[in-house]
Design a protein around this nucleic acid. Structure first.
Lengths: 410, 410
DNA sequence: CAGCGTTTGGTCAAGAGGAACACAAACCCG
DNA sequence: CGGGTTTGTGTTCCTCTTGACCAAACGCTG
């Protein structure tokens, strides 16, 4: 029961909902036979037939002879989402890199390009120009045959969901930058531009395509300098009232801790972020990715300082996770980016901190795993975000209804 | 988009969904005219007519002549949920009291009784016997004409949602008590028994009937000795994988803090709970409700010790809330029970801590208000919980379909 | 107080969409 | 090669909502 949109089901909505259900199944689970769709959706064969037919004639799916061997009975044709006709442009502004990708319906990554960028403050116009330069050739190669249905952008920063305004991005020195508008202006594709936080999108991607497939209550924790995250609640992204939810790097775990870039004192980020790790390892906190890799190499080589630094960081990681477990009662915690790489060294500390710091009931049922998608998770999440309108209402992207000609009087 | 239950819309579901929508509107917003329902649901007058008619003939709503004066046009009849035909039994095991209530459809509290109980450990069988003794006369008075559709129970403790098992209840010394089963066995009503945590139910009640009506992203914080809470995300209760979500009293805010009853160190509860307040006020921490009232009286009388204790507690309250705001980005925080009474004394500290401790973007958009329902909030939430099945599928409670007799061949 | 405009209810035919059923097709297996 | 099984195809039926038309009930106005 929800209080929002207590809207009635009109007869026209039914078909939309069913088209959406089927397209989502295909987009998420890949090619499925018609009979699999029947059992997954609970609809009848007749209904599936009609709906698949509509999706096929609209260019969203193809049907092909099934290659199923060994199954008795008449083979069921395989429905496959068409990655070549409807694509999204996914963009990412990360701390060390920029990335663009074209992703087809069904999640197939058609092209992906990532370039390093130096850390530091940079103008939004310049960054988006760089992204546009990267995206242009991809679009030109694909745009002949495929329709771009949307642009999704993953951003390291606090993003207002309603209009894609970057409220603050400490890594870039931004405050109140209307990033979605900038992208729309520079890319001139005349499709919706949706911007979201990289942590939220990483969570979305891991939930759809990564380590958290099929799990409905998930916490994703990632970060380099800043610690971000995303939360999946009952299978849905936790957005909050303004889209700012999921800033789990800024729970306050240590009132006597150091000042955080957000202005508060003792945020979790100050204890588990890249700088904390480097500081504990005796490195310059601003050493960046190269220095962090050095710590991992040293730890792999048995360096006590590096190992101690990782252990201490792991303990703080577990402490914060314990709070999060008590609040959300997730069944899965996915550790991404820095924490994913850290996982082999700190899993014992994390488990220990969870069992001592979280309450028994929620603590017993949570698993902690490293992310499956690596550094591309936010980019893939941006693609998923951009596909959302198409998946929610495929009818809008179908060719005009094929006017079922009937013989008059028949 | 959700991953769970990607189930197709069957033509029979439509009517169920629409009946549910209308009944929910009536249950939540009270009597509505048919034309108001038209505009709220987006359904047509014809559809509303049919649906209301079905609900009326099933005894769930009544239609009466509208008393609307001054409106032009034909008056629209008022549909009113019938509180006298379908009721739920709400039960509450609180730290200082037991309560029972009969609540009718639409949320009307028909009868409510609360009795004090001494704090301390007590057997589940004994407590439920007490509840049953309280409930018996209420049931006997109402049961002649009304059908009891469910039993909801609010419990101070960690509750497994699936089966109403109390995993732990420090106030009562319980571990793994199958409370729902005990209630079902003792009350013998042969209706579903649903048990949930008092904080979660307080949140539900404030969202439906209290300070958070119409707000979709809400944090409810309440507690006496233990600090609990409940979260409303996008208009829905946050449950988590096992139903344990919302234990916000056990976020860890102070690694050098004192040991919490949950076994961890430095939980928020140890800094903002009743015992912390009493300790700071120079009282015996186990003084209970009477001692707390004493502190409030002293503060009202200007006692510096009491005021300082409240100020310090308020600062910790705000610190924890800042973390929660960063994680959830709610638009409203509702302070219940102890914190509701504390609110006048600590609102300045809370605001201060929120503006310094929470990030700007989510911090700007959150309001903090005291609860509207007082100590009965969890009890009323239990009633709402028990109504849930009826509201989700009213068809099950309607009289058997009136078998639309058609003249054969017509 | 009668007439008018307005709003809403009542009724019924039409349309849309899924369900149910019977039949045909395509595969496996012996 | 024939039986069994599974699934697609096509038709009919049923349910539910819509839309249109008319009637009813109210306020307003002269």
């Amino acid at each position: 029961m929800t209080s929002r949109e207590a809207s009635g089901q009109r007869s026209e909505t039914v078909r939309r909902a069913n088209l959406s259900t089927i397209l989502q199944e295909l987009h998420l689970h890949g090619p499925l036979s018609r009979s699999e769709l029947v059992s997954r959706t609970g609809l009848t064969r007749s209904a599936i037939r009609g709906l698949i037919g509509e999706l096929a004639s609209g260019g969203l799916v193809t049907e092909e002879r099934s290659a199923s061997i060994g199954a008795p009975g008449r083979p069921s044709p395989l429905s496959r989402p068409r990655a070549d006709r409807h694509v999204v442009l996914a963009l990412e502004i990360a701390i060390d890199s920029l990335a663009v990708a074209l992703v087809g319906l069904g999640g197939e990554v058609l092209e992906l390009q990532r370039v390093d960028r130096a850390r530091g403050h940079l103008d939004a116009d310049r960054l988006v120009d760089d992204l546009a330069r990267l995206a242009r050739p991809l679009l030109e190669r694909q745009a002949q045959r495929a329709a771009v249905v949307g642009i999704g952008l993953s951003m390291v920063g606090v993003v207002r969901a309603s209009d894609g305004m970057i409220r603050v991005a400490p890594n870039l020195g931004w405050r109140d930058v209307p990033l979605a508008d900038v992208v729309a202006r520079k890319l001139r594709l005349d499709v919706p531009v949706t911007v979201a936080n990289d942590g939220d999108l990483g969570a979305l991607a891991e939930h759809r395509r990564g380590a958290a497939i099929g799990v409905d209550d998930v916490i994703y924790v990632a970060g380099e300098v800043g610690v971000g995250g995303g939360v999946i609640v009952a299978g849905r992204r936790l957005e909050g009232a303004g889209g700012y939810a999921g800033e789990i790097g800024h729970i306050r775990v240590n009132p006597s801790g150091s000042e955080c870039r957000c202005g508060a004192r003792g945020c979790w980020e100050t204890e588990v972020g890249e700088r904390a790790l480097l500081r504990r390892a005796g490195q310059r906190p601003t050493g960046g990715r190269a220095a962090v890799d050095g710590v991992f190499r040293a730890a792999a080589g048995g360096s006590p300082v590096a190992l101690d630094a990782l252990t201490a960081t792991g303990e703080w990681l577990g402490t914060g996770l314990a709070s999060i477990v008590n609040v959300f009662n997730p069944s899965l915690i996915v550790l991404g980016s820095l924490f994913g790489r850290m996982h082999p060294y700190v899993s014992a500390q994390v488990e220990q901190a969870l069992s001592s710091g979280a309450m028994d009931a929620p603590g017993e049922m949570v698993r902690v795993v490293p992310a499956a998608l690596g550094e591309d998770a936010p980019l893939l999440g941006a693609a998923e975000l951009a596909f959302e309108p198409l998946l929610i209402d495929p009818a809008g992207w179908l060719a005009p209804r094929p006017a079922l000609v009937r013989v008059a009087g028949a």
